[in-house]
Nucleic acid binder design. Structure first.
Lengths: 139, 139
DNA sequence: CTTTATCTTAGAATAGTTCTTAGTTAGGAT
DNA sequence: ATCCTAACTAAGAACTATTCTAAGATAAAG
């Protein structure tokens, strides 16, 4: 999911966003990981060596990036909003023990037929959340 | 989903919970509705005619009922924890416009084969979230 | 009727997120 | 290259949802 610097810059510009060091760092960080971090985790990751961004700016950047559709939120546990730079349709696995979240490729699960649901609904998409225990937690 | 009073009392006792007016009211309220209310909505619903329960008690009751498995949380939007007295497996439809949530019976969607996922995961279940627009929001 | 562990409650405390306001800056215009 | 300004960052205050605390109340067993 990681991309070269120049590609990230172009992606941001295409969305008419100024390429600031903070915004670049937040997006690049999200692109480089698949663990669906919280705002807090991104903050501490970015600032672990040198100060890069304030907390308020992390929240601003995440909100802006979400508004333009470059990232999305993943809500699978109470009081914890996680972020994902993979905006293509895909499913999630969540470990009920440690809370870890992993992506499941769209093609890994068969397509679900939604044509027989309530006809008054205009259905635009769906996603599957698989619950279980991850390898590390099965000790 | 609504049940007679005596049945609700017995259900609570079976879980070794004291049947207090507040706890009864919270559980009965949840059983009587299918709109997946938030703690705040339950609070104002219960107290709309006469004071029945404090906010702290609503949260206490919801937590207790969840711990014994009589209700469960539904997390589909940021900062809003909703509750559901339907603890049988089922799916959800969420209107992206008004945020309304509706249940989808388990049998309404075909069963998904999870046997080819990461073999290191111990899978315990899954659920589908369908996104779209509800009837009222299609004006 | 007693007794007591459990429960309720108001208010304080906490956690996560958003708002405010002042200063800074990316990047187009000159 | 420098100027200009709308967009951006940041510190701290504010807000919102939830949990905690501690003191009094009560369900229900004996």
């Amino acid at each position: 999911m990681s991309k070269p610097t120049e590609e990230i810059v172009q992606t941001l510009k295409r969305k008419q966003l100024r390429v600031t060091p903070q915004r670049f760092a937040v997006y690049a960080n999200l692109l480089s990981r698949t663990d669906h971090p919280t705002a807090e985790q991104i903050l501490s990751d970015l600032n672990q060596d040198a100060p890069v961004s304030s907390q308020a700016t992390i929240y601003n950047c995440l909100q802006t990036l979400r508004e333009v559709g470059l990232i999305r939120e993943v809500l699978l546990e109470e009081g914890n909003c996680r972020y994902d730079a993979n905006v293509q349709p895909h499913h999630h696995f969540r470990c009920g023990s440690c809370g870890a979240i992993a992506d499941i490729p769209w093609q890994a699960l068969q397509t679900i037929d939604l044509s027989h649901l309530n006809p008054d609904w205009q259905v635009s998409g769906y996603e599957v959340t698989v619950h279980g225990t991850c390898e590390a937690c099965q000790a």
